[in-house]
Design a protein around this nucleic acid. Structure first.
Lengths: 228, 228
DNA sequence: GTGGGACATCTTGCATGCAAGCAGGTACGC
DNA sequence: GCGTACCTGCTTGCATGCAAGATGTCCCAC
């Protein structure tokens, strides 16, 4: 149905708003991924390349590329000559994600602190993220808090120097974002407690105490199971 | 990497052997990946789609798809209108890989054993892998041992039921395979010691002792740092 | 020798055309 | 009513053509 000729009649493709990725494939990737993560495309739903391409005013080719990448991330399951199915969230998704997150972050803390005190810059980055979280709590801005929360945990992984860990952690973050959109269970009351946990974690980093970090993180993850 | 077009139904996911690559894109993917892992394509080397396509007698399109997947796995770095660069192995690659492997496998053991004794099938799978390793040691067959070694460690991850972990573990396995090809440092003498470690690990699983498993695994990984 | 522009040639990005697989509906024979 | 063949419209897989960015080179002015 929607050949790209339709795009000739319809003005420029709907602006996604946030940023303008130069390439069509990139645009299709981010657009589709966002829709999956936000839950606009529900798990189990069937999407076709032409459908997305029509919406963005591009041909099937770049959309096909986007689908391949999403398939590699297990957000989409390609089915030859039938279409692509949005990966359903397993009932254990939350548990799986939090478990991996804890495992990787703990390992990162151990590596970061293996040679004693961490670099000043890492500590500064932690403080920076903490400040953002404090401001977000004060403003009762959940989105900002989530962003700063992600940043905080990423700091440890990034500064561990393990690029593989950073790669995995990014994938985990996507999935967690998807969970957040689905559960919508973040409450303001949780933010203060989470911020306290983060302060504690930062202290363990400053004290070069990886096992303490792991212990606090375990509590932190357990406490916010599925919530943050 | 299993064919992601086939949606896995239940844990444990089906084992995928080396299957005939029906599709051109699949063929290009496996061919290129193998060449990278084996070191035929050295880190930093520039490869083009047309080059691979010419070798396989397919057009650029399926090769392009293969490159995209390899880029997502960080085995290839695409550079717009210049070509694709084979990802160089960082000097810390070995450490990164082993660290993640230990982190994920330990977490998997904890989850598998969180509710006491593991399922009979899991124990049987461990014994099966152990038998293979014993035979490989007897035959001094390093390739067979490596395969059985991978299988052994995968069993725990697979039976933990965390599909995300299984996904990561598969990616790690690829990178470890690449390291093996580069280092070529596996010696027959190591096999016996590794087999002993595995027996010990299997015992910890049978005893539903995740912390013991983690401890033995830590020793095991440290001992064979970069070697196996 | 050195700087710079034109050009040839490499590369990919994307649109498109065609073939073929898959699914749902329908008419037909019984 | 029921099974089967077929038809029609969906989907993707892949080859191909064209446009355009990146790079190297050659030549010429100075």
């Amino acid at each position: 149905m929607p050949d790209s000729r339709i795009s000739a009649s319809s003005p420029p493709p709907p602006r996604t708003g946030t940023h303008a990725p130069a390439h069509a494939a990139e645009r299709a990737y981010h657009y589709t991924k966002e829709r999956i993560l936000r839950g606009d495309l529900a798990g189990g739903e069937l999407v076709s390349e032409g459908q997305i391409g029509g919406m963005l005013g591009v041909s099937r080719t770049p959309v096909h590329e986007a689908f391949l990448r999403l398939d590699a991330e297990h957000l989409l399951t390609l089915s030859s000559r039938k279409g692509a199915v949005v990966a359903p969230m397993s009932p254990q998704e939350s548990r799986d994600v939090l478990e991996m997150r804890e495992a990787i972050e703990s390992a990162s803390a151990r590596r970061l602190l293996a040679r004693g005190r961490p670099p000043k810059e890492a500590l500064a980055a932690l403080r920076f993220a903490l400040d953002h979280q404090r401001d977000a709590v004060a403003a009762d801005d959940i989105d900002a808090f989530v962003e700063a929360d992600d940043e905080f945990h990423s700091v440890v992984v990034r500064w561990s120097g393990n690029t593989l860990a950073a790669h995995f952690f990014a994938a985990i973050r996507d999935r967690q974002q998807r969970l957040r959109y689905q559960l919508l269970s973040i409450r303001s009351e949780h933010l203060t407690a989470a911020l306290e946990d983060h302060r504690e974690l930062a202290e363990r980093v400053a004290a070069a105490d990886p096992e303490g970090y792991a212990a606090v993180l375990h509590q932190h993850v357990a406490r916010h199971q599925g919530g943050l």
